[in-house]
Amino acid sequence: MSVSMLSTFVKPMHREGRKFVAIAAGITLVLFLICEYLGWIGVGLTVWVYYFFRDPVRVTPTREGLMVSPADGVVSLLEPAVPPAELGLGDRPMVRISVFMSVFNCHVNRLPMAGRITRVAYRPGKFLNASLDKASSDNERNGLAVELADGRSYGVVQIAGLVARRILCEVVEGQTLMTGERFGLIRFGSRLDIYLPEGVSPLVCIGQTMIAGETVLADFTSEEAPRSGGVR
């Protein structure tokens, strides 16, 4: 197998996953001692845990004005919504793009657009299915307010899901990140909400598959109207 083919299947792992892979491997050893059949089930579980915490390299568009998806997954909601009050983005509706991540998606989160983190706000809450609209207001969440070079701000919110029980945020207020840089992770199924500044139209559709750090969500230099799409 060539190096390029190997890299297609073997991805780097986020450091948060090391302890979980070690736990799964330990359970697998015990299962083999009990029954070989159960041991192989444990092997499958260990591989899945590694796969969940994969942290692949992404190629992020660098042209000025492009905003990319912060998460792998599917666009589940696309509508005007008032951003969480704790972000300090005001009480007027902003266009919200919601990206739902299943347990099979990569869960490393990346900053949608370069800027300075002006607010990091955690809020405890419920663990409803992250695909539901009310998950934005009721579920446990951690939000970032990001100030752009032109003075405008946008929001990106990590939302826990039905299975997710831990939101990891690795940035602090005052920190400046580039587009596509990693800022956190959510364990085991969740959702990311992005709140666009006024006058910016989304370039994605409900049901579209997103790739974190690569798929363009919006173009701040474009006057294109919001896109519509159809299943093919």
Rank of each mutant, 00 (worst) to 15 (best):
S2L: 07
S4N: 12
M5G: 13
L6D: 14
L6S: 11
S7F: 08
S7T: 15
K11M: 07
P12Y: 00
M13L: 12
R15M: 12
E16L: 02
E16F: 00
K19Y: 03
A22K: 03
A22Y: 11
A24Y: 02
A24R: 04
A25N: 11
G26C: 06
T28Q: 08
V30S: 09
I34G: 14
I34T: 11
C35S: 15
E36K: 01
E36F: 06
L38Q: 12
L38R: 06
G39T: 07
G44L: 10
G44F: 06
G44N: 13
T46R: 00
V47W: 08
V47P: 13
P56K: 02
V57P: 08
R58L: 07
T60L: 04
T62W: 09
R63Y: 09
L66M: 03
L66S: 01
L66W: 03
M67R: 00
M67K: 00
V68R: 02
S69P: 11
D72L: 03
D72H: 05
G73K: 02
S76V: 06
L78Y: 12
E79W: 00
P84K: 00
G88P: 05
G88F: 03
L89T: 10
L89R: 07
R92T: 14
P93Y: 04
R96K: 08
I97Q: 09
M101N: 05
S102L: 05
N105K: 02
H107W: 00
V108Y: 01
N109T: 09
M113S: 10
M113A: 09
G115H: 05
R116I: 10
R116M: 13
I117V: 15
R119C: 09
Y122K: 10
Y122S: 15
P124M: 02
F127W: 09
S137I: 12
N139C: 02
E140V: 01
E140S: 04
R141N: 14
A145D: 15
V146M: 05
V146H: 03
L148R: 14
D150H: 01
D150P: 14
G155T: 10
V157S: 11
V157T: 08
V157C: 05
A160K: 00
A160L: 01
V163G: 11
A164P: 06
I167Y: 07
C169A: 02
V171F: 06
E173K: 01
Q175G: 09
G180M: 05
E181T: 02
L185K: 00
I186C: 07
R187T: 07
R187P: 08
R187A: 06
G189C: 03
I194M: 12
P197N: 04
P197I: 01
L203Y: 05
L203H: 11
V204G: 14
C205L: 10
C205T: 15
I206E: 15
G207N: 09
T209N: 13
T209S: 14
I211W: 10
A212N: 02
A212G: 13
G213S: 01
E214M: 04
E214L: 00
V216K: 02
L217G: 03
F220W: 10
F220P: 10
T221W: 04
T221E: 15
S222L: 07
A225I: 01
A225G: 02
R227S: 12
G230T: 12
V231S: 13
V231P: 11
